[in-house]
């Protein structure tokens, strides 16, 4: 009786560990479902939308300009941010708004990326804390699941002029 209960417990524990490890591998290397909150990506991703994120392109260094990525916040390692990649290493970036008379540019250093939200007026991004290292990127968002009216691949950036033209 006791032995049977013990064996059952151990089997349950083993299955828990096994499926936990499989889930960890899937979330770490393949991708997962993420809920976004906050207004910084407003026209593309509304508050509390549910999206699908994949991590493969990060592991194979396939992040490109215009991709929406999830990254660790550079100020607070426990929180995540969701922004659009505006510049990769070596790109020339406009650091102030394009309507200003004096335009200031900066170059993204090696191994870094420049992130900006689509809602330029209400977004804390690289214009505030500078370029962030590539190692902070967790995954790339490419598919929206919820709300169903917006089901499908994500739209392009509404601020196309922010990309460096080369």
């Amino acid at each position: 009786m006791l032995r049977g209960a013990l064996g059952k417990t151990f089997r349950l524990l083993g299955y828990t560990i096994q499926y936990g490890c499989i889930a960890h591998c899937a979330f770490e290397y393949v991708g997962g479902v993420v809920m976004c909150s906050g207004p910084s990506m407003e026209p593309t991703i509304q508050n509390s939308d549910i999206v699908f994120a994949e991590n493969l392109s990060r592991h194979f260094y396939g992040i490109q300009r215009g991709d929406i990525v999830i990254a660790k916040s550079p100020n607070d390692p426990k929180s995540n941010i969701c922004k659009r990649v505006i510049g990769l290493e070596g790109d020339k970036i406009l650091t102030n708004s394009s309507s200003d008379f004096f335009k200031s540019h900066s170059y993204v250093p090696t191994g870094h990326v420049w992130l900006e939200g689509d809602n330029l007026k209400n977004s804390t991004d690289s214009r505030y804390y500078g370029p962030i290292p590539y190692g902070l990127i967790r995954g790339r968002i490419f598919f929206k699941i919820w709300p169903l009216s917006d089901f499908g691949f994500l739209r392009d950036s509404p601020n196309g002029y922010r990309f460096s033209d080369d």
């Binding site: 560990i17 096994q18 936990g20 490890c21 499989i22 960890h24 591998c25 770490e28």
Partner: peptide
């Protein structure tokens, strides 16, 4: 399927 995820998770 048991060993590989467990090993990867342990190493990570």
């Amino acid at each position: 399927f048991v060993a590989v995820p467990v090993a990867v998770t342990f190493l990570d």
